[in-house]
Amino acid sequence: MNCSGYERQMPDYLDGQLSRANEDALRFHMNGCPRCRLKIKDMESSIRAVKSLALVTPQPEFDYRLSSLLTKEVARELYAAPWLRRVSEAFSDLGELSRQRPVQLVFAASLVLTITVFGGIAGLISPSERPGSSPGGSMALSLPTPFEPELAPPDPISPDPPDRAFARNLALKPEPNAEQATSFPSTAASRLTFTPSRNYNDSPGVMTVQTMEPTAHGIQVVSSGTGMPLDPSLFTESLGGDLVTDGGTAQSEPEERLLQVGTAEVNGQRSTGGQSGPAGLPAPIKRIRISF
């Protein structure tokens, strides 16, 4: 056997996987071949070097973002099931087309539209009979578009941006004074009520989320304002990623995360609260989105 033949055996030799006879042959060859001897030596140092590298682990926020992402994916599938899946499967027979996002988005959009219409009808029929329904909000399901309340960060320059007026209309319970952040009791923290009222009085589809349970993954919506039976897994929203921004609280408990949402959302006037943190941190929480 020549050098390249022996070289092919080197990986197994370095693993100690070579048969006795082959190992002896390779050793015998290396005795007389300085190049192969050097190669083995180099390979050994390379292995040692690479193995000396420490194990790197993802940041703590990684798990939040990942679970948020997966929850959305699960919810998306659940939401699409079962008839939508059948339609989708029928489409997938046509080819790879249906696996692509646009088609799924079209389905999702049409579904959202349907629910909006139905929600509107339901809201018109019996707006007062709803238990726990707040005067402003009119519907249980929160729809990402077009009624999603988006709060831009308070602009210090303009005197009274529209967002701020809207933010004042958001009622947060049971903690009216959102500044008392640190003493939020853990049981009370599990309940938040958002009641967007301005401009939404007569529109259906406004978010009224009433009971939210902080879980290890973030906030979980357990029931809706209307008492409509909802699949909890359908409405799980994690607060990972952009929501966990205040300096030093990256690893905070779920309660604290929840609280941050409260303070940032409700306190429209709090212009510098989140932004005064150390430089390089992302801007404070901008919005709550229960998306699926």
Binding site: P11, D42, S46
Partner: peptide, 16 residues
């Protein structure tokens, strides 16, 4: 295996 060989050798060459 041959890529592992070559990769290891290159790596060590750089480190040297």
């Amino acid at each position: 295996k041959s890529r592992v060989n070559r990769g290891r050798l290159r790596l060590q060459e750089m480190l040297r």
